[in-house]
Design a protein around this nucleic acid. Structure first.
Length: 489
RNA sequence: GCGGGCGUAGCUCAAUUGGUAGAGCGUCACCCUUCCAAGGUGAAUGUUGCCAGUUCGACUCUGGUCGCCCGCUCCA
């Protein structure tokens, strides 16, 4: 059996659509860019991943609690977080130095220089042009024209090699209130879930009886107007994050950061992703986000290359300090033992649920040669599989159907099962292979005609072998096999 | 955002110089069938991405628009 190497996402996209994992949004209207819907199998898969994450974060840690904050937040939140400032300005890049500047600031500096040189008329003229930007073509175009006409050079490199002026509106804006229309009522769809945690930090501390170090975990949607949103569910405009913010004592932050980076990498391995397809990748200091002291990606080797599936950040006390400043509410923690007051540092683990789902699909995907035919199979961790057990009568005969339906009824409460009696048995197996169903139980004549207890065959997705087991033991058997599953190469 | 390519049934594709759409696979039903998609019979599905124009007539020509792919750019 050969290992399947995927060069791109085509096969995954096709299978996702054909089997009902993932569809493009609003397909019948021609689709909506960079937005996708999860179909019946995808919804189950995604939910299973969520549950595994939630359990590993909350249930397995006595000092991490859950939260479910709203998508809408007070607009001041995004001023405090730095998103409004950073996401809404007309920016221009110097191609020589790759430095980015606010286009309007460049022009103001230019005006200032002119005044210093005594060129008052010229300065006034440009000031007027700047004040009336947006009235000629558009804000970006007008600013660009001034920079071009005045041959304004980059402050640091001295180069005159600009990109166009672009408005960075990463946040989706909408109106709050049914009768609203004006700018006053603008509200944002959150661009990250983290702020929902930070603004509830005090509430949680006051009610959940937690002590530093402690964490708050949350799963939820976030929205970003990406400049370039492509590559299936890898980069979407509406996506789901699974985040945990861990509040620690300053000074212990670097240790905790290292600890969580390793813990999170291990989680991905535990989900059944092959170790050779996972790695961590620290961000170089000059590429860190404004709030971070240290950061690393957990990357997966997608068909489109090594890409970030999760980010671990040391956010320092940036967010809590800013919220303290903007809200006027104390964000300090009082350590009774040490009799110290401080604003905790925050270690963030933030994993993309959609990216994880895509990773699981990619890592599971195989095409194998079986008797000159190609078998497409998703060898994913049984815990994550949308359907756990396919249950079939070998052929449509009452005797076989009755037992198969009885087994189905017995297992349905505990497992996601699927009963199928159409077509040949081989076809039913292969159909379940494509859905990633790890076990198929078939009722045959040997089983029901034997004296004593009924037996069935159980067929394994990964190697297509079978065992004959008592019909009453299917549940026990599956439970055991699920626990002992490990990925193959 | 820029440049290039593409857009016909769920999927892969076909339709002679413009004459109002077909096949295979898949799906569904029935029959057959004692374990790995390949038996038989039958059925459903398309305003040819969308809108407009040229034309007696457009899947086929033109423009716009939406979406997808590749490259560049971007990713605070």
């Amino acid at each position: 059996m050969s290992v399947t190497h995927l060069d791109n996402l085509d096969k995954i996209v096709s299978l996702s659509k054909a089997r009902g994992f993932i569809f493009q949004s609003s397909d019948i209207y021609g689709g909506l860019g960079a937005v996708y819907d999860y179909g019946p199998l995808g919804a189950e898969l995604k939910r299973n991943i969520q549950q595994e994450w939630w359990k590993s974060m909350t249930q397995l840690h006595d000092n991490i609690v859950g939260l479910d904050a709203a998508i809408f937040m007070h607009p001041r939140t995004w001023e405090a977080s730095g998103h409004v400032e950073g996401f809404n300005d007309p920016m221009i890049d110097d191609k020589q130095s790759n430095k980015r500047y606010r286009a309007d600031m460049l022009i103001e500096q230019h005006i200032l220089k002119l005044r210093e040189k005594g060129k008052k008329d010229k300065a006034d003229e440009i000031q007027h042009l700047l004040d009336t930007t947006g009235t000629r073509k558009g804000i970006c175009e007008d600013l660009y024209e001034i920079i071009m006409d005045e041959e304004i050079r980059a402050p640091e490199s001295g180069a005159f090699d600009w990109t166009e002026v672009r408005q960075f509106n990463l946040m989706f804006k909408t109106h709050y209130g049914a009768t609203s229309s004006g700018e006053d009522d603008a509200i944002y769809l959150r661009p990250e879930t983290a702020q929902g945690i930070f603004v509830n930090y005090k509430n949680v501390m006051d009610t959940a009886r937690v002590q530093v170090p402690f964490g708050i975990a949350q799963i939820g949607k976030a929205f970003r107007n990406e400049v370039v949103a492509r590559q299936f569910v890898f980069r979407m405009r509406e996506f789901e994050q699974m985040e945990m913010q861990y509040f620690v004592e300053p000074g212990t932050d670097q240790d905790e950061y290292e600890k969580w980076l390793e813990a999170r990498l291990n989680w991905h391995k535990k989900m059944g992703v092959r170790e050779s397809n996972l790695r961590t990748s620290p961000h170089p200091p000059d590429k860190l986000a404004h709030y971070a002291r240290a950061a690393a990606d957990i990357q997966y080797k997608y068909p489109i290359g090594w890409q970030e599936v999760e980010g671990i950040h040391n956010r320092t006390d940036f967010d809590l300090s800013r919220h303290q400043e903007y809200s006027g509410k104390k964000m300090e923690y009082y350590d009774q033992q040490k009799q110290e007051r401080y604003i905790p540092y925050v270690i963030e683990t933030s994993v993309g649920l959609d990216r994880t789902t895509l990773m699981i699909l990619c890592d599971a995907y195989r095409e194998e040669e079986v008797d000159g035919d190609t078998r497409t199979v998703l060898k994913m961790n049984p815990k994550l599989a949308p359907t756990k057990i396919g249950i079939f009568p070998l052929i449509k005969k009452d005797k076989l159907q009755n037992l198969a339906k009885k087994i189905e009824a017995d297992l349905r409460d505990e497992f996601n099962v699927l009963y199928d009696e159409s077509g040949s048995i081989g076809k039913r197996y292969r159909r379940q292979d494509e859905a990633g169903t790890p076990f198929c139980v078939t009722v045959d004549f040997d089983g029901v005609e034997s004296d004593g207890e009924d037996t069935v065959t159980i067929r394994y997705r990964d190697d297509m072998t079978q065992d004959r087991i008592p019909a009453a033991k299917v549940g026990d058997f599956v439970r055991d096999k699920m626990k002992n599953w490990s990925p193959e190469d």
